[in-house]
Design a protein around this nucleic acid. Sequence first.
DNA 1: ATTACTGCAAATCTTTTGCAATAAG
DNA 2: CTTATTGCAAAAGATTTGCAGTAAT
Lengths: 143, 143
Amino acid sequence: MTENTQRLQKLITLSKERGLKLTPQRMVIFTILSEANQHITVDEVYQRAKQEYPMLSLATVYRNMEQMVESDLLKHLDLGGTSMRYDTNLGKHHHFVCTKCGKVSDVYIDDIQYKVDTKRSHLDKAKINSLDLHLQGTCSDCS
Amino acid sequence: MTENTQRLQKLITLSKERGLKLTPQRMVIFTILSEANQHITVDEVYQRAKQEYPMLSLATVYRNMEQMVESDLLKHLDLGGTSMRYDTNLGKHHHFVCTKCGKVSDVYIDDIQYKVDTKRSHLDKAKINSLDLHLQGTCSDCS
DNA sequence: ATTACTGCAAATCTTTTGCAATAAG
DNA sequence: CTTATTGCAAAAGATTTGCAGTAAT
């Protein structure tokens, strides 16, 4: 069983657990997501899915992706482009964006240490729950 | 001279340096930006500016803000909302977003130490130029 | 005088939504 | 059978653009 097939199986199992019905449209979307790169847009999914299932509607893809986010099958990934990206990698990780070609790489970081300048920051008693690192630079291919 | 007046003076000086013409519209926008909180949208600027200069066009605000970004008088601030925010704080800093009320605070951090898991990440010879920390949690008011 | 800037309206782009028909469980 | 899901077309919201007139330098 390939890695992609495993991912697909996992999506099917989880969506059943969440009570989602397994329509052919959803099945096509799941398949694409389990094969795709990790930082995909709705329209990219739609373009590929149409080839398998030509009468598919764009609205259906939008609705499905948002449902998946609500059901924790997918995460929003806001990289500052013109349209929303979705991250199929649910594990804890960060992102590196190449400012030349725009490519996005996942970055795994063991531990981060930092010291807030409390005089200039005004966090007071704020409770920090999560921490995302956004790295920018030039990727190997572009340098 | 107040802090806001200083900010305004700085914008005027810098824009002259960049060769921008000082129209009344631009002047109003500059004034609002030098008085405003740091994470403002085009529409927020527009709404306030209209009161001073009612025949101002929204397109003019859009064009001016983008020009300011190009001329390094302003920075894009992508916090994942529905519309672009602009940051008037040009110094190096990071952001904390309260997940309950949405408030954004600037966070100053002296030094950040982290260790990339090179086995799982694939940065290869990528050159990292900048590093943004995006903190999320609950602010003092909400907890 | 020259060139940037402006207002307006139309266009574009992404995302959402109402609704009636259909299909999954 | 019941309820979620779908396609379609329209709506909504943010941003951009063409153009002809206006104003800053």
